[in-house]
Nucleic acid binder design. Sequence first.
RNA 1: GGAGAGUUGGCCGAGUGGUCGAAGGCGCCUGACUCGAAAUCAGGUAUACGGCAACGUAUCAAAGGUUCGAAUCCUUUACUCUCCGCCA
Length: 430
Amino acid sequence: MLDVNLFRHDLSAVAAGLARRGVTLDVARFEALERERKDLQTRTQDLQAKRNALSKQIGAAKGKGDDASALLAEVAGIGDETKRLEGELDRVQRDVRDFLLDLPNLTHASTPVGKSADDNVEVRRWGTPRAFDFPVKDHTDLGEALGLLDFATAAKLSGARFSFLRGGLARLHRALAQFMLDTQTREHGYTECYTPYIVNAETLVGTTQLPKFEADMFSVRKGGTEGDGERLYLISTAEITLTNSVRGEILPADALPLKLTAHSPCFRSEAGSYGKDTRGMIRQHQFDKVEMVQIVHPEKSYDALEEITGHAEVILQRLELPYRVVALCTGDIGFASAKTYDLEVWLPAQNTYREISSCSNCEAFQARRMQARFRNAAGKPELVHTLNGSGLAVGRTLVAVMENYQRADGGIDVPAVLQPYMGGTTVLAV
RNA sequence: GGAGAGUUGGCCGAGUGGUCGAAGGCGCCUGACUCGAAAUCAGGUAUACGGCAACGUAUCAAAGGUUCGAAUCCUUUACUCUCCGCCA
């Protein structure tokens, strides 16, 4: 959520900022809402002040044993009018909030301006795609031929866009997650967390999945589908739980930066993505991810973005997977982010780089929704900045390992850094 | 699932209808004292919104209700704790 004071003081600047994203700000609507809010607030508060003053006099009079009936007569009628105004004020304040909740973050000056993913800007490349002297297979063919990847069984159990792994591939999947977590916790100073996978609506508002993106979430009801209990949601990323862990908190300054990581499943309904990446494990309703979150001092957040991106890159480097870093343009960047780097890994079967990590600086956008603050040098609460980055998406990393490490005989070599996690296994053999 | 007790400021804790945004303590900040520190003493110390300001309004888990007036009374919800049951 953007700062309402920015709207009040420099509406045209906000409109210009949002225009960079291709979002048109309804200036007239905001101005109308604000006018109404101001008018209602002034009138309501005047009336409340009058009522409070009279009520105090009644109290004082009764305390002295005086007759208060004249005062009571005077205050009669104020009550109903106050209540009516309070209701209207409440309504218009909700409208203002809803208006703000619907708008994306302003992008950072360094975020390239563009309309779509085509306008993203490559920042750097690492590694050289391997030259194959045999026809490459994609991970689906490789996995199914090995009998380790089974989409038919997954479909029987759950439907499309789920996968069922067996044997060495299931273990390789686990090895990847372990390796990622170990690297981030031992070498980069993150605290490992285990978090709930089911969260309430308020949590999702904090990290901006609600109210705008409910269609992308899976939800359940307390008390079963028949119940009318509270609706809860399956997390689409551990960013949700890690970031919301500081919701409503005022952190001491020396608690920053707070660096958290978690390995979790992620559940995405991906409504509207039909037809894209229908084959294989690229786009699934359920996948695992190791997520990194940093809660930082506002002045440090852009340094932290470079750092967190580097932390994700280390994983790909250790796995010796070629990748490139892309700065997302204003037309492709996420709702809450001011600046985002995507890491794209080389997939030989697709002969292209595909997203495997996304590292974002949300500045105070999430913090404002969450009221996540720290006590600054002046002793005053100030909003923190929040960052998140995948370190990495485990399922897509598995895909990248399978395709980049495939052998002519259809087997898959185990990357050296993963072998200790695989009991010394060096190859998933035919 | 059943029974009971709770939820007040950064923290502890008082407050059962009126001048209570809230006693007292701790912590923190400023000043005095000191060569300096400790101790002591004095003052200060929530957040948001409106207003140039004075000041006003709201907030005592959340929502609703009663009342001229609610931290205080009523209803519902959430959470915490204790005991019983069940369970990995």
